[in-house]
Design a protein around this nucleic acid. Structure first.
Lengths: 253, 253
DNA sequence: CGTACAATTGAAACCAGTCAACCATTGTGG
DNA sequence: CCACAATGGTTGACTGGTTTCAATTGTACG
């Protein structure tokens, strides 16, 4: 029933992204399978396009299929801060559930494809299918936990530690064939990284330069390659486990 | 069927907390009414008692009825940070939904009473009652939004602005008969405030002293009274709406 | 009453922010 | 095709807010 979808989201393995195209990479266990939603629409965004704006009416969640999104919130005095970067497999819009209008904005940092999931449909399916209700609960709480980690980062880490953790987090989430040398695509600007990490763009630039100078990473214009993961983990204040059980969960099923 | 509950949570208005004893003060609209759950147990905590520990098995959410809780998460290297303070009307434990073990710890900052809401029961009711499923969704996303606000605070505000916003937030959430002069009970230590705000305890102390010196607030051992809400809002970088609905006439300005 | 804990305050060190100059890349229009 | 502007990135010098270290006072509880 999924393969009949023509210009629609296919289930199973995506064409251009390696990981299986399901929702919720947030927690282990059951995931929400797109096969449960035959009437899904895709949306294609060019770099800079907005997926939704703050105060726009909330209708849907969006599953990122390729590319990258930034989600921003506004302060009362007009400044904006990035609260998260969303990669393929992530679900965007969870912070607006239960509201009539979006609590945040989402913009593409790169050419990006998303699947639109009308929330009313999710709600309806959740009502009749316990597995779906549970999956939605899990994704919502997973988002809470991810933000808690960011709270920890912003609350107690220094610039270098923040950057190191950020790079590790991005590299773990970018399931882009992690074997090929742990290179991460980073389409966002220094200022956007800084906005997310609570740092100024100069500090981000300086710190990346320092990590580069020390041979821990390699900075290639809009990308980063991790050369010494263990050193990076050390700088991030993380334990230096796993000598090399490489990404073996690739095609898990 | 609610009034038959003896040592159980009553519905309607609480004895010692003023606000109606419903779950979810997070967003407007429908709320989750305790009358829907006849089999609820109360738990009484003394100052310092833990409601649950990180890695303890997750079974229930808890609705705070009186007192105050702090929720903490652990870094990999053992330090702990407070991710939130929970007041009467708040729901604790949402960050662990979908997990077998708690993602955080919760401890009482004061003598505290909570209602235990077994999550399996909530899930079951959510399955059959759309209103309850929606209420759970709303509470989960509300928690996301609250943490987003904290991200904003940690990411871009200076110490004085953080404290000012914190005091305003606490005073708005402490629905303790807000008329009686806007005095807030603050059972937590300076260090705990600092942990939440990403500041050291000395900075918290210094900043509170400064606000006191300037006549904006009054610091009474473990409590704070806001004397000049508008000045405080100014320092917090918030708009200075509502010139003087009620507070001013009482203070005889 | 004394111990332990919390809070306050001061002085010095330090990390990140600010201001500013310069370089690299990209895209635009003459 | 080149000149040019615009944007993003890098780096340096300086400033300043927070942290750190330390000493003192205040408060709660046995």
């Amino acid at each position: 029933m999924a393969m009949m979808a023509a210009k629609r989201c296919e289930s199973g393995v995506c064409g251009h992204c390696v990981q299986p195209c399901v929702l919720g990479t947030l927690s282990s266990g059951l995931r929400l399978d797109l096969r449960d939603f035959p009437e899904l629409k895709e949306r294609h965004l060019a770099r800079g396009d907005y997926l939704f704006h703050t105060s726009g009416s909330f209708e849907s969640l969006y599953a990122v299929r390729s590319g990258m999104l930034k989600v921003t919130v506004l302060t009362e005095d007009g400044r904006e801060q990035i609260t998260g970067f969303f990669l393929p497999g992530d679900l965007v819009g969870l912070d607006s559930v239960g509201l009539r209008h979006h609590a945040s904005s989402a913009a593409a940092l790169d050419d990006t494809v998303v699947c639109e999931l009308p929330f009313s449909v999710l709600e309806r399916h959740g009502q009749s299918v316990p597995r779906i209700q549970a999956a939605l609960f899990r994704m919502l709480s997973g988002q809470i936990r991810r933000e808690q980690s960011t709270l920890l980062l912003l609350g107690s880490l220094r610039a270098e530690e923040r950057l190191a953790q950020f790079l590790i987090d991005m590299s773990e989430r970018a399931h882009t064939d992690a074997d090929c040398g742990t290179a991460i695509g980073m389409p966002m600007t220094r200022e956007e990284i800084g906005s997310y990490l609570g740092l100024k763009l100069e500090t981000v630039s300086r710190t990346l330069s320092k990590l580069h100078r020390e041979g821990v990473i390699e900075v290639i214009k809009r990308g980063v390659r991790i050369r010494e993961l263990n050193k990076l983990r050390l700088l991030a204040g993380l334990s230096v486990r796993k000598p090399a059980p490489s990404a073996l969960r690739r095609l898990g099923h």
